[in-house]
């Protein structure tokens, strides 16, 4: 197995991990963010803190607890083995589950910001017009927060790309299974093969740069609250009253 092949494998693994993470997180994050925006109970700060926790926690701390939880000795690791027949630690499923938790705030927070900025006025208008809740959500609310959806997906993707500490803790460095780009890069540096490290670093840099550029290019809100300058200039009908 050549180094070139393992690097390509690491690249593929990274993209697969990032894509799966984003898809799953959007599926989880959209309902979660919607619910959390509407929820006004006493426990709201606790839920918000739980969602935001991976932002401030060192990845190694998170990785350490996940390693303990995923190990075949724990009840969760046991359960996973009985359900799937595989163990979680040092497996692709393990790092996928880890990145879901790790990247959760990067997806949920832009969505929550989108939902709360939108408010409930358009939902109420649609409700009064006789549009049932599910149709309102799918055909009105989601299109209205499209900019936030794009932000959430891009941030989740870019953040998963650069994941290191957590993957190292719970996934280790197994080529083709858990060796993602950042870990392969670290491996090359440890081996003092700086040329290969350069290549991988450049790939990661380009990926992050391109995804952020695309985000800012397409993430233009189509509505603004301040359109008073237009209305005042145009069509000022003199009251004939």
């Amino acid at each position: 197995m050549t180094d070139w092949f393992t690097d390509a494998q690491a690249l593929w693994l990274t993209i697969k991990l990032a894509c799966l993470t984003v898809i799953l997180l959007l599926l989880i994050g959209i309902p979660l963010a919607w619910w959390l925006t509407k929820y006004q109970g006493r426990l709201k700060p606790i839920f918000e803190a739980l969602v935001a926790l991976p932002l401030v926690l060192p990845p190694t701390v998170l990785g350490f607890y996940l390693l303990l939880a995923f190990s075949p000795d724990s009840w969760f690791g046991q359960l996973w083995i009985t359900l799937t027949g595989e163990q979680l630690v040092f497996s692709f499923s393990g790092i996928l589950l880890g990145s879901l938790i790790y990247s959760l705030p990067f997806v949920v927070q832009p969505l929550m910001a989108g939902f709360s900025q939108l408010g409930h006025q358009y939902g109420q208008v649609a409700a009064s017009l006789g549009v049932p809740p599910v149709k309102r959500f799918v055909f009105l609310i989601l299109p209205l927060i499209k900019p936030s959806l794009i932000s959430a997906a891009t941030l989740g993707f870019a953040h998963t790309l650069g994941e290191f500490g957590l993957v190292l803790m719970i996934g280790g460095n197994i080529p083709g299974e858990t060796q993602v780009l950042s870990i392969a890069l670290y491996h090359h540096v440890e081996m003092l093969s700086y040329d290969k490290a350069h290549n991988l670093a450049l790939v990661l840099l380009c990926f992050s740069f391109v995804s952020l550029t695309l985000l800012y290019k397409f993430n233009k809100p189509f509505y603004s609250n301040d359109k008073s300058h237009r209305t005042s200039n145009r069509n000022q009908n003199s009251a004939v009253d």
Partner: peptide, 10 residues
């Protein structure tokens, strides 16, 4: 058209 398409009363 949104109203015609999605309203229960349309």
């Amino acid at each position: 058209e949104f109203v015609l398409k999605y309203s229960n009363w349309a």
